[in-house]
Design a protein around this nucleic acid. Structure first.
Length: 272
DNA sequence: TACCAGGGCCTTT
DNA sequence: AAAGGCCATGGT
């Protein structure tokens, strides 16, 4: 990877298939927002960051070269050849079309705890409100970062709160689910890092032991927070896609080891 | 298997 | 401006 450091910013050249807009607005992540000059600003992995793409060059503001190498390349999944994956989907006309439409999407390797908590909040909810609740959670219970933003609160911090304190974020009936997740992660009853080492279905069963985590939320956590790129979340949108374009007995497992990436292309395409 | 659980967005009127 | 449907659901 071609990494240059220039007056406090990092530039990585020759990155194909990276659109910040598609990546941050396809519903996998709730803490990045578009700023001026089409850059994206947000907090992840406990750090604030600003990103900008010009052609095939990615500029990273506010990060050290060490953090780029250790954190951000992995977070943005920059080492994976998405062009090759898109071509591998050419056996399916509809998927291939969707993939070309969303060819700048990358599946972020997000923090496992933040992903679990965020997708519990996402249930039966819309994106603007999900973002608002997460923002409130971070401002209230996260840690203040040098640039004035707040980190995502740790499981142990949330485990120390009452249900009504979590409810101050206006998350409604989800407060008890967030608290259960925080307590199970904080106590070690669930070890999210260990789940990355299991097989997908065993990890899914572990996640579903948490209140408020059903198949859909578990699938999202597997895909966005635990690195299982074969995980294929099926929500109302995806049901619609499957009904519309695929036979009744169709199983998304035919999409293979990158079925989760296929899911994102189909989701992004269908939502328009 | 229905129905219920915040609340706010968003479209329609 | 007011109404009502809807929302990347899961629990009971």
């Amino acid at each position: 990877m071609n990494i240059e450091e220039k007056s406090g910013t990092i530039i990585i050249k020759g990155i194909k298939n990276l659109s910040l807009k598609q990546t941050f607005e396809c519903g996998q992540c709730f803490r990045f927002n578009e700023a001026e000059d089409e850059s994206y600003v947000g907090v992840a992995m406990g750090k604030s960051i600003r990103l900008r793409v010009d052609g095939n060059d990615l500029t990273i503001f506010g990060a050290t070269k060490e953090d780029v190498e250790k954190i951000w390349i992995k977070y943005l999944d920059l080492e994976r050849d998405y062009g090759k994956i898109i071509e591998s989907f050419s056996f399916d006309v509809h998927l291939h079309k969707a993939a070309q439409n969303g060819s700048g999407i990358r599946i972020l390797a997000q923090d496992s705890w933040e992903t679990l908590c965020s997708f519990i909040i996402s249930q039966n909810n819309n994106i603007p409100r999900i973002k608002k609740i997460i923002d409130s959670l971070c401002t209230r219970y996260g840690e203040l970062l040098p640039d004035g933003q707040y980190s995502f609160p740790s499981a142990s911090r949330l485990a120390s709160l009452s249900e009504s304190e979590i409810g101050e974020t206006r998350c409604g009936f989800r407060a008890k689910y967030i608290l259960d997740a925080a307590r199970q992660v904080d106590s070690g009853a669930i070890d999210l890092e260990q789940l990355k080492k299991l097989d997908e279905e065993t990890a899914r069963l572990e996640l579903k032991k948490i209140k408020g985590v059903g198949d859909k939320v578990a699938s999202c956590v597997l895909l966005f927070g635990l690195g299982y790129l074969s995980s294929f979340p099926v929500d109302v949108w995806m049901k619609r896609v499957l009904d519309k374009y695929y036979p009744a007995d169709f199983s998304p497992t035919v999409f293979g080891e990158y079925a989760g990436i296929a899911q994102q292309y189909l989701f992004y395409f269908e939502r328009g």
